[in-house]
């Protein structure tokens, strides 16, 4: 069989090691879902959804923009569902590239988000009507962000990903601060600092893979 260029070895060990590193980095990038696609939809959902919530239900009942009362919370839920669909589709497509434990972990992690959110939404919708509007909004918003923060931290533990763990811890801390300060401020804090952190983590993750 004739030798092609491919069959020839590289002469220089340093060149070989560089080639090894390059191919390893290439495959890591090709089997990892784009962090921008996984996190930016959530970042925009929080920025816009919680932003609308702040503009309509500001601190001490302040109304900056007089949106119809049902708009902010429904807009937020809609944006969150849209973000869930985008990340679900991207994650599923990626899971098909691999077969084995990593792909199974991805499936379980995705299902964890879906099932735990479904439980929380069902529970909150039973109790939210019994609370004044301001407190019910805080219950929904604070609960949703608490769960997202916890699941991002769990994701950090699962994938051994420091950025994801920091994102979850940061989200949990700002959520706590917002809940203590009260409704209105909570929406602003989560929109800017929470949504911003999601966008930033997506960007950092993408830059690391490039």
């Amino acid at each position: 069989m004739a030798l092609t260029d491919d069959d020839l070895p590289l002469g220089d060990p340093a060149e070989s090691l560089a080639l090894i590193q390059r191919e390893r980095a290439n495959l890591v990038r090709d089997i990892t879902p784009d962090p921008r696609l996984m996190l930016w939809p959530w970042g925009f959902a929080w920025l816009i959804g919680f932003g609308a919530l702040f503009l309509r239900y500001g601190p001490n009942g302040h109304v900056t923009v007089d949106l119809p009362s049902f708009v902010p919370l429904n807009l937020l839920l809609l944006l969150i569902i849209a973000a869930g669909v985008v990340t679900g589709v991207v994650g599923t497509r990626h899971a098909r590239i691999l077969s084995g434990p990593t792909s199974r972990q991805g499936l379980y992690y995705g299902l964890t988000w879906a099932i735990s959110f479904a439980c929380m939404v069902t529970l909150f919708s039973l109790f939210a009507d019994d609370l004044p509007e301001e407190r019910s909004s805080l219950l929904w918003a604070g609960g949703m962000v608490a769960l997202a923060g916890a699941l991002h931290m769990a994701g950090g533990a699962l994938w051994n990903n420091r950025d994801l763990f920091y994102l979850g811890a940061w989200t949990s801390v700002i959520n706590l601060v917002g809940i203590v300060i009260g409704p209105g401020w909570h929406s602003l804090i989560v929109a800017v600092l929470g949504g911003g952190a999601l966008l930033l983590t997506g960007l950092i993750g993408w830059l690391r893979l490039r």
Binding site: D7, P9, L10, S16, I31, I97, L98, T102
Partner: peptide, 27 residues
């Protein structure tokens, strides 16, 4: 694996965890 092409194949596959498999087209 001393041949350049096979070194590239094995290098790429080495990032997979044990028991993980990658599809041929993606590789």
């Amino acid at each position: 694996i001393h041949a350049q092409a096979r070194l590239r194949v094995v290098s790429a596959l080495s990032v997979l965890r044990e028991d993980d498999r990658v599809t041929f087209p993606r590789l």
